[in-house]
Design a protein around this nucleic acid. Structure first.
Lengths: 121, 121
DNA sequence: ATCGTTGTCAACCGTTCGGTTGAACAAGGA
DNA sequence: TCCTTGTTCAACCGAACGGTTGACAACGAT
């Protein structure tokens, strides 16, 4: 799983990680801050952060002994680009299909006056 | 990992599965059709389809001995809704931050005529 | 200097994942 | 009825995942 898009999807597949991202849209936070609401060890949270960081969703800077975590929201674009591309493609296909069915319907009606159902958009 | 959103993200975290989804935007396909380009067994592809189906990304109907696979593109909305919500939230936060920095800048300029850089949108 | 806080690294554990092979089932067509 | 085609089920395997505990590095405070 080397490509970034896979990493981003994988990172967001975990509810805890998704929640962390959600909270990071409000404000940067330290590992301790982030860990507080969850019933897991600090180390586990640290691991989650590493996953988010590897996916490019998050960056960490050093600030005395603290390591504030900052959300990198631009990576969202990677996903939305992928999703929107194929969503659009799928929608285009459906409209083409609708067109074809409409044509068949019209031809049918011409030939034998027996229109079919199921072509409503 | 019981919630659907997690399942959708997890499903799309795999490049092979992402490719299948991409191809299904072109046309419905049988398991054999789908398996053709990949260098894995038919059973492996069948498993991938099960994952996609559990995530609600795909549906299968029976048609003689074939099981045509059909893309359910609406589920994409689940993701885009989540992504867009937090992207917007993050952007709002950044604009607030920009506003604060601009205000500080203005105050600075008033006080000692020493404007700073870096507040351009 | 040493102490407390903050966070990471390393090793381990049970579960899930993506893959395999082999057998089975389902539905025509001969 | 038997055969072929299309697909799934079951058991297994190695790697990765999410979690744990224990040690320790980095820094500020006293």
């Amino acid at each position: 799983m080397t490509d970034q898009l896979s990493k981003v999807f994988a990172a967001l597949a975990d509810p805890t990680r998704r929640d962390m991202v959600a909270r990071l849209t409000e404000a940067d936070a330290t590992v301790n801050d982030l860990a507080a609401p969850y019933d897991v060890s600090l180390q586990a949270v640290s691991k989650h952060l590493k996953v988010l960081e590897d996916a490019g969703l998050v960056s960490r800077t050093r600030e005395a002994q603290r390591r504030p975590v900052h959300l990198e929201a631009e990576v969202f674009d990677l996903m939305t680009k992928w999703i929107e591309r194929y969503r659009r493609q799928a929608e285009e296909r459906f409209s083409r299909l609708d067109a074809v069915l409409a044509a068949m319907n019209a031809e049918n009606a011409e030939n034998n006056r027996t229109p079919q159902e199921g072509t409503a958009s």
